[in-house]
């Protein structure tokens, strides 16, 4: 999802666990939330840092493809809406960095791991946004896929992560609806506008399906994460749910999902659909997608060129603090 391919260790049975580990697992099974200073297995802590960190990075990098269109939005109202949406993504990144920090890593460390390539962000943000219709497709499909994953994560076992997800989910449905509203406008516009909407769907359909991560049969590490309740559904379950909800929405728009094999399967009560090209997915994850370099380059530039500003505010805060201390001394 926003956290794809997060690896965790192999799973232990209850008998193999230490008394602490067993007590921990029993609390998780009972639906109790785990809070920052409580005992937790080292693997749980590390996997969560990777997962929440990757999720936070995705929110931050995810601002870039949409930020691309803020200055080119077709009306002032559309611009204000897009700006608000992108600002929300910044907020979501901050909530998630705070949640990750409760596990004993700092935000600056996380940023450095993103910039060095040690930590990843979602593959979806390595695709370009070529037309205004892409703002519709991103909101509708990308935020739609994100919601699919984030709603169950509100029940995750780690308290700070769960609370961040609850806050994010409250705001996320605005994002999907504003995207769909753009698609409705374009799909009902001139033939050229409708073509742009179809083109956006064509380009974003398979990358959106990739957001859920590889197929369950190739996803070796999810059993432990599911036992710990930091992953609530399998990749294929969520992908199926997404397709089942999205296809009728595409039909309403009068657009065609770019999958000739797509067909309703009455027996399973869901659609049969083509898998995305997984070799493309692995290439994008490795750094060879169309925009990987541009996205990381933009983050690196913001980090480097913002250094004087971060330092300046720190220097000001220290000076003001010293002035206050001196004034107190003088008054005594």
């Amino acid at each position: 999802m926003y956290a794809q391919m997060v690896k965790s260790q192999g799973m232990k049975s209850l008998e193999e666990m230490s008394p602490e580990e067993r007590a921990f697992q029993e609390r998780v099974d009972a639906g109790e939330k785990i809070e920052p200073k409580e005992w937790m297995p080292e693997g749980y802590r590390k996997t969560l840092i990777r997962q929440i960190g990757q999720h936070a990075h995705s929110e931050i990098v995810g601002q870039l493809p949409e930020g691309n269109w803020i200055t080119r939005a077709p009306t002032l109202e559309r611009k204000a809406i897009l700006l608000a949406k992108v600002q929300d993504e910044a907020g979501h990144g901050l909530y998630l960095y705070s949640a990750a920090e409760t596990l004993g890593i700092s935000r600056d460390e996380l940023t450095e791991k993103l910039l060095s390539g040690e930590m990843k962000y979602s593959s979806i943000f390595n695709y370009p946004t070529l037309t205004w219709a892409d703002m519709g497709a991103v909101g509708w499909l990308v935020d739609g896929a994100a919601i699919m994953n984030q709603v169950p994560l509100q029940r995750t076992s780690y308290g700070p992560y769960s609370r961040a997800m609850i806050r994010i989910c409250k705001e996320e449905s605005f994002h999907q609806r504003q995207g769909y509203a753009i698609m409705m406008k374009m799909a009902n516009g001139t033939p050229e506008q409708k073509d742009m909407a179809q083109d956006a769907l064509n380009r974003f359909w398979f990358p959106a399906l990739m957001m859920f991560g590889p197929s369950d049969k190739d996803s070796v590490h999810s059993a432990q994460s599911m036992a710990w309740k930091i992953k609530m559904n399998t990749n294929d379950e969520l992908r199926q749910k997404f397709v089942d909800e999205t296809v009728p929405q595409a039909e309403y728009l009068g657009l065609t999902v770019p999958d000739e094999t797509l067909a309703w399967n009455a027996e399973k009560g869901g659609y049969d659909f083509a898998e995305p090209d997984w070799s493309e997915f692995f290439e994008v994850i490795k750094g060879n997608g169309p925009c990987n370099e541009e996205r990381l380059g933009a983050r690196q530039k913001a980090w480097d060129e913002g250094a004087w500003f971060r330092d300046g505010l720190t220097a000001y805060a220290e000076k003001a603090e010293a002035r206050r201390a001196n004034a107190t001394l003088a008054a005594e």
Binding site: L94, Y95, S98, E101, R107, R163, A164, R167, R310, L313, T314, Y316, A317, A320, E321
Partner: peptide, 8 residues
């Protein structure tokens, strides 16, 4: 409601 970083 949560936390954040700030210089002062």
């Amino acid at each position: 409601v949560g936390s954040l970083h700030a210089p002062d």
